[in-house]
Amino acid sequence: MENLLLLFAGTVLINNFVLARFLGVCPYLGVSRQVDTAFGMGLATTFVMVIASVFTYLIYHLLLIPFGLEYLQIVAFILVISSLVQVVELFMQKMSPSLYRALGIFLPLITTNCAIMGLALLIIQEGYQFLEALVFALGAGVGFTLAIVLIAGIREQLDIADIPYALRGGAITLIIAGLMALAFSGLAGVV
């Protein structure tokens, strides 16, 4: 139990997917103009991460290993994740339009998010058990949400700040992202 908690905290804060592993940087910079949308993106990513980790874990251990097809894991995972996201999106659109409006619009973007693929591959690489994989996925999602909401909050403040002309827009965002990664690196080695 203590292991799982440490794993969770470590994934959220220390080995943060965005700020320490630099996975999922595209939505991190792209969908972080408003806190509201950033939070929606974070939630949707967390959701997909947890589901995808379950399915990729099962596919890997029940299908790929028995047939000795570990070398096909990337192809198989792409297949699983993209189909899964599609199904979830269709399902959500019909069954829960309000949830679809809140999350659904982010789902197609997440299909190609490297954080999801990275998560699936890391679970295999680290040799996690099923429960550990679940906690790891949840931590990754929460960490992503934390990072994207934080930068969205900062960017909302930047909109009204007096930024030097040359740094406006993308440049200042990249600088902020770098500073955040530096700040989080201060936590390295705590767990």
Partner: peptide, 11 residues
Amino acid sequence: NCGACGEAGCS
């Protein structure tokens, strides 16, 4: 799908 409009993407 650049998000420059402030939305999550083109759709």
